[in-house]
Amino acid sequence: MDINPILLLAALMVASTPILLAAIGELVVERSGVLNLGVEGMMIVGAVCGYIAGHSSGNPYLGFVGAAAAGAALSLIFAVLTQFLLTNQVATGLGLTMFGLGLSSLIGQGSKGSPDLTVSKLHIPLLADIPVIGPILFQHDVMVYLSVAIVAGVWAFLKYSRAGLILRAVGENHDAAHALGYNVRAVRVLAIMFGGACAGLAGAYISLVRVPQWIDGITAGAGWIALAIVVFASWKPWRLIAGAYLFGGVTVLQLNLQAEGLKIPVEYLSMAPYLATIVVLVMIRAGRAPASLGKSFHPST
């Protein structure tokens, strides 16, 4: 056996980070009662903008900032359409993906990068030197930790803060929240923009760390997986980590088993993560979705 479980687990964390970032953003959006199926579109625009911002400034962290801004800007289209012009969220989200895929390719034409721009790995003092756990958990780049920190932040926000309570109230019953005097639309627009920013970061993680390069269609469906994981986690932040790492884990393990030369039907194995999601969904009897999810809100109704 050449598979090194320590390296495998470490690789899993890197492979899972983009879907985790995109998923935590979408989770907040959905908890506010909005279903944005445009994650893939926002991710890829984030990927190209992050790539360009990072390479033109020479600083990958500025790239991440640019990607978050670009993702949030694109999500604003969705926010205006669904919140103010009351368009159907499913169709608008699909349209956003289409638009984002096209736009990213137009933006990226002729963009050049240098192979030397890298995001350095941290070596957290002491912790990184612990055998086994150190290499698995404490020798990653800063974005891996940021993604987990965002998850923790979202959890605390939803559970303990007043603003989080309002957001949940808006997602559960927008009419009641409105009657209580909360600005339903403002809450949702902010949530959508947070989702866009996270999706942008996720895209930039692919184009600046995981691959790292820019090519048309580089996100290759990761945004859809992020959507799946949100439901998989039944809209609970901590479960999101389990979902994302399960997905990433199956992908990485599949490649490792192949390299090991095991006689497995690899061409069928790539569907394992999707089937696993369905199985888990059935087993956990998917938690209840926010009651107002996907419904349009207008103050007069």
């Binding site: 289209i77 012009l85 009351l86 368009t87 608008t92 289409m98 984002g100 895929l101 096209g102």
Partner: peptide, 26 residues
């Protein structure tokens, strides 16, 4: 034209068609 321009254009068409629908009900 790059093929991405057409994809972008289709996205815009969709946005517009969805957006104007508001005029029917509001």
């Amino acid at each position: 034209l790059p093929s991405a321009a057409i994809l972008t254009f289709q996205g815009m068409l969709l946005f517009c068609l969805l957006a104007v629908d508001v005029l029917t009900n509001y």
